[in-house]
Nucleic acid binder design. Structure first.
Length: 323
DNA sequence: CAATCGTGGCC
DNA sequence: TGGCCAAGATT
């Protein structure tokens, strides 16, 4: 296996650390609760990391950013082919920025949550206008882009620029919940306590912190998974609080599920699928065929228009947005 | 803070 | 078969 790439570009930093929020005294005193987790996890990562295209040096910050958008709630296996096509077609932010937003929605294909495509396009426009076409390395500037929240800003800054940020995604949250807190699952919504813990566990030096971020995430994705976790392959099984406690079942409030069948989301999905596959305006009648119930159908279409995913035209025609 | 927002694969 | 889950963001 190829060694997972190191953070590529040096990037003349000089970025003055944002005035640190006069933080609450995080966690006990030493920033190291219990035995060291970093070395085993990072060593494991060196041996077991997947060779994903966005981890290769040639991906650059734009590749990392595109992958992060696509990976928001969508599995790696489905992202791979779309990622490759996307980068081949729009190798730089400015290339995407020139396109109609509807082209981004079409190229997004069946990745789901198509608003992400619109936001990625919007981010490309903003990067072109405000940052000279280069993905910013500053966390606050990343956070200001459409579609980028706390997680994605930290991920891009860390993976693309090698910076030191807590990268708290669903994988890392689960790993920390188990290994450190001793429970099976993290809370439904990210809590301040989780952020404090992630911050406290961050290695001091930048390169190691960036490596830890990628490694702990990969551990959650490959070994410490939501369902059938593989403790026998886990590099920190011996120190895992949850395992040492006998792997008690989740108690707390039920983890909220996702319903889909019969929802507006399903209707929206069908409507957009028709528009994606059509290369030109689509008559209302064609859209009417995707769902029998007229009230819900109309509401779904209105929603898509309101979201900017669909553009109504004169004469009862609809198309993906040109502007 | 909770609801909303797609899609498909897996056990 | 169907609930659960997948590198979240936004309102």
């Amino acid at each position: 296996m190829t060694a997972p790439t190191k953070p590529s570009q040096p990037e003349p930093a000089g970025t003055p650390a944002v005035p640190s929020p006069a933080a609450a005294p995080a966690v006990p005193s030493p920033a190291s609760p219990g035995p060291d987790l970093h070395s085993p996890v990072i060593d494991w990562f060196d041996e077991n990391a997947r060779d994903l295209p966005w981890r290769r040096p040639e991906a650059g910050a734009w590749g990392v950013m595109v992958s992060e958008f696509m990976l928001q709630q969508t599995p790696v296996s489905r992202v791979l082919p779309v990622y490759e096509q996307w980068l081949a077609r729009w190798p730089r932010p400015a290339d995407l920025a020139r396109e109609a937003p509807g082209e981004a929605v079409r190229a997004w294909g069946r990745l789901g949550y198509p608003r992400r495509a619109l936001r990625l396009h919007g981010a490309a426009v903003a990067i072109t206008e405000r940052h000279g076409g280069d993905v910013p390395s500053d966390h606050a500037q990343l956070l200001a882009l459409p579609g980028i929240g706390e997680y994605t800003a930290a991920a891009v800054a860390s993976f693309a620029y090698g910076q030191r940020h807590p990268v708290l995604d669903t994988n890392v949250r689960r790993v920390l919940a188990r290994a450190v807190t001793g429970v099976q699952y993290p809370p439904n919504a990210t809590t301040a306590a989780e952020r404090r813990l992630a911050r406290a566990l961050l290695p001091d030096d930048e390169p190691t912190a960036a490596r830890w971020a990628a490694a702990s995430m990969e551990l959650g994705a490959l070994v410490c998974t939501a369902k059938s976790e593989s403790c026998h392959r886990c590099p920190i099984a011996a120190q895992c609080a949850w395992r040492l406690a006998g792997k008690p079942a989740h108690d707390g409030p039920p983890r909220r599920g996702q319903t889909y069948a019969g929802t507006d989301r399903q209707v929206r999905g069908r409507l957009l699928a028709v528009l994606r596959e059509a290369h030109g305006p689509v008559p209302q009648a064609a859209l009417d065929r995707v769902w029998h119930e007229p009230v819900q159908r109309a509401r779904a279409l209105d929603g898509l228009v309101a979201d900017g995913l669909v553009e109504p035209m004169a004469g009862g025609l609809y198309r993906l947005p040109l502007t």
